[in-house]
Write a protein that binds this DNA or RNA. Structure first.
Lengths: 203, 203
DNA sequence: TATATTTTTGTCCAATTGGTTAAACCAAAA
DNA sequence: TTTTGGTTTAACCAATTGGACAAAAATATA
């Protein structure tokens, strides 16, 4: 038990999540995690047998926050316009709460793509089915969408990119004004939805 | 001199660039670079005094390939439509040739934002000036662009994201079909331009 | 209380880390 | 041929790495 009434096990997980997300797998040492958690290094191995196991658990959890619940939102009977607004809003909101998710997940999958296969297998969901379902839902309405896959990448990319590139954008476009950048991110919920809807409007 | 008539110094740089881009700074060891370059570890330190120096040189070079030459393209007297097409085309083309650039640069700047300050200072260019110039150029024509900064992030994000998220998209949307994904990326040059132009068309 | 059980720590380990140094090598100049 | 300069190597270093292990401390159970 720590001061806050949190179990040691949970405390380790919280600290490790933070450090791993900040510095990546190889940029993080077990000693570092132990120090920041205020415990002995051996205790890490007591609860989570190895660095890989600890990281694996954290990555799986963060990964599930990155993969959008496209299926759920696009299976409702709302209009496509409403679906897009709902998705963009909740997806961006999630990253505002935890801005490191995108770069952490994408970087790890870039150097270690085989993690992906494991995670998909464990999740049990069938990506192809979900994609097909959404594609159908996109084609249904009379909109200017030639390739649903391109549109999905556009939609997700517009949400994700500003977080992955935060330091760059904040410095180059906002002269390192953190407040201004936060405001920019909030405004993006509206901006991205409108942008997407304009782009697929027929005429 | 190596077999290909390339100097040892240059060969080290090429190998190091590849390894660093694949595994990041802390995921790379000097031994690894030495092995892949077919030389002794001491030789690395002979040519590039330290790991940091070697990495710094490589990062500066790759970074300059990531920062789009927005200024150049948007200062011409083409129409905005032509400018956008020209930019998207050349920017995406560059990443097709070297797909690891985006994730490498964004990841490094995420864990080490102070690199950015140094690089900008060394480059001598004034980001604020460039941004202002482009903003003006975007406002000139009668288009549906409320905030030029949002539009710039949209444009760059649509180009960059598919490369940063390549493993994910390739697996989830293209069932790991590399060929299909390459085709998708090629088609994106046209897709992104059209998408952007549709989105800012008035009416 | 005394006895298990769980949690935490200190100590140790082999391997690897980035880096140094002196010696060996080798082609070209003298 | 000897000398000179840059190049390459082997040996070595202190520090750090992830991890093992048993003792100790704390807690639960009897």
């Amino acid at each position: 038990m720590t001061a806050k009434g949190i179990s040691t096990e949970e405390n380790i997980l919280n600290v490790a999540r933070e450090v791993f997300m900040r510095n990546g797998y190889s940029g993080t040492t077990m000693q570092q995690i132990a120090d920041e958690a205020g415990i002995n290094k051996s205790l890490l191995h007591y609860y989570y047998r190895s660095k890989e196991k600890l990281f694996g658990q954290i990555f799986a959890e963060v990964f599930s926050q990155f993969i959008p619940e496209l299926g759920k939102i696009f299976m409702t009977d709302k209009s496509l316009e409403e679906k897009i607004r709902a998705f963009v809003d909740s997806y961006i909101e999630g990253f505002i709460r935890n801005p490191l998710i995108p770069i952490f997940v994408m970087q790890e999958l870039s150097t270690n793509p085989q993690h992906l296969a494991d995670l998909i297998r464990k999740s049990g969901i069938d990506p192809e089915m979900v994609i097909k379902m959404i594609s159908e839902s996109l084609k249904k309405e009379d909109l200017n969408i030639q390739d649903p896959r391109q549109f999905m990448v556009n939609m997700i990319g517009l949400c994700v990119f500003p977080f992955a590139a935060q330091p760059l954008i904040q410095r180059l476009i906002f002269n390192n004004d953190e407040k201004a950048y936060s405001k920019f991110l909030l405004e993006r919920k509206h901006e991205v939805s409108e942008f997407l809807l304009n782009a697929i409007r027929k005429g």
